[in-house]
Design a protein around this nucleic acid. Structure first.
Length: 387
DNA sequence: AACACCGGGGTCTGCCATTCTC
DNA sequence: GAGAATGGCAGACCCCGGTGTT
């Protein structure tokens, strides 16, 4: 974690860029209103008529933000307290982010969506960025995450905690690639308190141990790398889902253990109500199509992702397959076809019908293939039908 | 060469509620 | 008591291709 002590000072040199709105300040971690050189910030306390009960908004800050293209209305709606602050670092933040390749528009978007970002000091930003750079390959990668989710980067001011998280997650056996995927996909994980992350990991280890698993540490690692969102969910939610699966299908411990560290990991973070609703609809739908209870269980065990699919989507997907001449038996045998969009399936069925493709004879694997492979197959079919 | 099996990769924030801190 | 920090929630799949087998 190498930091650049000179950068803070450098930032200050650029404050003259927009002299009228120069409101820079840097303090060790966060901006505070005590012990700072007055000359570095504009202190304006104009009475605002919008909210007389609390302190007035800082007019010069409002002007500064407006000038930067920030959506002040949005700021007021999200974190109104920020607008009342006497000392902020919006220019420093903007300069910092520009230096990392962010456009003016991106910066404005970041501040609009997570106003508290402007309360972070230059030094804090440098330090946090350096830590993220330890995981990412380039500044632009980080900029794109910030643009996507400013809150993930700015919500916590605790850089020590961030470092502890990186160490902790690394200690689980997650390698550099895993960490990269984790931070890209679920950046919020790194703003969680390390204690919260630890709780989830311990919870997963306990689950494994209770089910008679041999290596709880490995289990937790596998579940996390299979479901990158799990650390930003509550243990309450994950527990409810595990209990629900266990009770509903009366699974044995080894059966459940295998499911959870296999394809089942990805449905653990669904909202419990959603999971229940989807299963109920699935059971009803399959029953109406003549499937037995054992068929449903078998389907869930070998293809738990089916529970991820919303009931309307699933229903229309099944209808579309059945209408296209596929049988329920075939779908149960090759449930992966359900992974493709209804639109994709519909299109493929149409094309195959044109060529009088015989699903009875050839099976339905052709529906579960990449676009490239499907097109190649189609070409071959067209050629052979010409003969 | 064609197919089947199977695992991996992408992607997911923005808001509200509660607790902490000054 | 205000604002900051943190926890938790709803939302709701799709696609590709390596590799072993036939």
């Amino acid at each position: 974690m190498t930091l650049m002590p000179g950068v803070q000072g450098l930032l200050g040199l650029h404050r003259t860029l927009v002299p009228a709105f120069s409101r820079f300040v840097s303090s060790p971690t966060q901006l505070t209103s005590v012990g700072l050189p007055r000359g570095l910030c504009t202190v304006t306390a104009t009475v605002s008529d919008s909210k007389p009960s609390v302190g007035p908004e800082n007019e010069s800050l409002l002007e500064s933000l407006t000038f930067m293209g920030v959506d002040v209305k949005m700021v007021r709606q999200r974190q109104p307290g920020v607008l009342r602050k006497i000392i902020t670092n919006e220019q420093g933040l903007a300069h910092f982010l520009h230096g990392k390749g962010a456009s003016r528009k991106v910066v404005a978007g970041i501040i609009s969506r997570y106003p508290r970002a402007i309360t972070r000091s230059g030094e804090h930003l440098e330090q946090r960025w350096a830590m993220w750079r330890g995981v990412f390959k380039s500044d632009s990668e980080i900029v794109s995450i910030l643009d996507r989710s400013p809150e993930s980067f700015f919500r916590s001011s605790d850089n020590d905690n961030l470092e502890k998280n990186i160490v902790f997650l690394g200690s689980l056996g997650l390698n550099a690639k895993d960490l990269h995927r984790l931070l890209t996909t679920a950046p919020r994980t790194f703003s969680n308190s390390v204690e919260l992350n630890r709780q989830m990991v311990e919870f997963l280890e306990d689950v494994c141990a209770e089910l008679g698993g041999e290596d709880p540490g490995q289990f937790a690692k596998v579940v996390i790398s299979r479901n990158l969102y799990i650390l930003i969910r509550s243990t309450k939610r994950v527990k409810a889902n595990i209990d629900f699966l266990k009770a509903t299908f009366k699974m044995s411990d080894p059966e459940l253990l295998a499911l959870l560290q296999g394809a089942g990991a990805e449905i653990l973070d669904l909202s419990n109500e959603y999971l229940k609703r989807n299963l109920k609809m699935l059971q009803e739908k399959l029953a109406s199509l003549g499937c037995r209870k054992v068929d449903v269980k078998k389907l869930i065990v070998c293809y738990p992702t089916v529970l991820f699919i919303g009931s309307d989507t699933l229903s229309s997907k099944l209808d579309c397959l059945l209408k296209g001449g596929i049988t329920m038996r075939q779908i149960l045998e090759k449930p992966k076809v359900l992974e493709y969009s209804t639109q994709n399936i519909t299109g493929r069925l149409e094309e195959l019908h044109k060529l009088r493709y015989d699903f009875e004879k050839n099976g339905i694997n052709i529906l579960d293939s990449s676009r490239k492979r499907f097109d190649a197959k189609l070409e071959r079919l067209a050629l052979s039908s010409e003969e």
